[in-house]
Design a protein around this nucleic acid. Structure first.
Length: 414
DNA sequence: TCTGGGGTCCTAGGACCC
DNA sequence: TCTGGGGTCCTAGGACCC
């Protein structure tokens, strides 16, 4: 099940007075900035607009389009509603992304009175429209891969079922680039080997593919182009990484500015880490230069951490190492946390009697307190905030100068 | 004024262990 | 008078997906 232009539909649901009935809508960043198209209405697609092209070129292709920012809150809300609605149809209903889900209908034949799968799909489609207000497309097949490929055939707002036994024939009609997991690089590699059509690809021996790439990759491609897939419809475990990154309006050279931005990103990722009661062992900092080359530096610590202070100190050291090697102007900076643990304990500590831990209970308490304050009062506080001394504030209330930040920062927090 | 931001998975080399 | 073969973990980079 795949929502048609989910972000466009959500934008309309967020602001129906302005957008209902509009045919030309672009969701994404500002055309003046470095943003790209997150989602384009089908009307815009007729002008050649696609997701991920720069917003500036999208507006050039379709000048009368209305540009709206990503309706994040509505997307999350509708994604949640979709998940709940789908659970009415099968106990095995799994979201694959915000706008995409898989249902395993095996064993529901009696429940649905042996009606054709297409019939069930249409009823699901109507039900989802009723419960969520969203138009979706539904693809049906005996496996996930082919079902997903079938949704593209169904779009928009359609249903397409590949009957059992027809998987290979169905996939044979597609382009190589339509296959899931085949991107521009692999298409180019295949072209260099003289393979440009699906039939040419399917004519290759497994051994031939194996001589071009490793065995794993060869086997995967050999199976995919035949519509073979035995992955179960199962929910993925928790997230494996949490990251935040930002592209600057203009490239930045200055280390102080980069560190200030990095600190904001760290606050972001560390807060969501703590929200999920997780600790991280690996911190990665990434820079992208104007040639679009990504450079990253990461560090894995033995004791997992979760406080703003410790994560920021590790991240800042990584940033400085990156800058020493790659001093070019940066267009993007990002930070990522991974290698999660459910506590900050280090089993080896007691054996080795090492020096004091990276992160103390005090660090964690401070971060939790900051989380509480921010939950209650918004983004009023973060690392680097001046913690005012109430005594001094009272004294200076009479008209004296405010304490300098440097002075206050030295005071012990109360 | 080309090229976002959130992810997952894979590879390859080196350190280190048995 | 020479250098195996298995494994895990870490790091850096890259392909791909929505």
């Amino acid at each position: 099940v795949d929502v048609d232009a989910m972000f466009v539909q959500c934008a309309v649901l967020s602001d129906p007075e302005r957008l209902a009935g509009e045919d030309l809508i672009l969701v994404g960043g500002s055309p003046q900035g470095r943003g790209v198209v997150t989602s384009a209405s089908y009307g815009c697609r007729a002008f050649g607009v696609r997701s991920a092209i720069s917003m500036a070129s999208a507006v050039r292709l379709c000048p009368s389009a209305i540009v709206v920012p990503v309706p994040g809150e509505m997307v999350r809300k509708k994604s949640r509603q979709l998940r709940i609605a789908l659970q009415h149809w099968s106990p095995v209903a799994v979201m694959a992304s915000v706008d995409e889900a898989y249902l395993d209908l095996s064993g529901t034949e009696v429940l649905y009175r042996h009606e054709p799968l297409e019939e069930t799909a249409r009823r699901i489609q109507r039900d989802l429209k009723l419960r969520t207000g969203l138009d979706v497309s539904i693809g049906g097949a005996t496996n996930r891969l082919v079902a997903k490929l079938a949704t593209s055939y169904a779009k928009p707002a359609g249903v397409f079922v590949v009957p059992p036994g027809d998987e290979a024939c169905f996939v044979a009609r597609l382009e190589i680039a339509d296959l899931i997991g085949v991107g521009p690089t692999l298409v180019e590699d295949l072209r260099r080997h003289g393979v440009t059509t699906m039939s040419a690809l399917r004519a290759l021996e497994l051994e031939t593919l194996g001589s071009w790439w490793g065995e794993d990759r060869a086997r995967w491609l050999w199976r995919v182009c035949r519509g073979m897939d035995d992955s179960p419809v199962a929910a993925r475990a928790g997230a494996k990484s949490i990251s935040s990154e930002t592209t600057f309006r203009r490239d930045i050279v200055d280390l102080d500015s980069l560190e200030r931005i990095l600190r904001g990103l760290v606050v972001d990722v560390a807060e969501s880490l703590r929200k999920q009661s997780l600790f991280a062992r690996t911190i990665t900092v990434k820079l992208r230069d104007r040639e679009f080359r990504d450079r990253s530096r990461s560090r894995t610590v033995r004791e997992a951490v979760q406080s703003d202070r410790v994560i920021y100190e590790l991240a800042r050291a990584l940033l400085r190492e990156l800058r020493e090697r790659h001093g070019k102007p940066a267009r993007l900076i990002g930070v990522s946390l991974g290698n999660f643990a459910s506590s900050g304990e280090d089993e080896q500590r007691s054996l080795l009697e090492l020096a004091r831990p990276l992160e103390g209970e005090r660090d964690r308490a401070v971060s939790r307190a900051v989380d509480l304050i921010r939950a209650r009062h918004g983004e009023v506080i973060g690392p680097g905030s001046v913690i005012a001394d109430p005594e001094r504030r009272r004294r200076s209330a009479g008209g004296g100068p405010d304490p300098s930040p440097a002075q206050s920062a030295q005071d012990e927090p109360r």
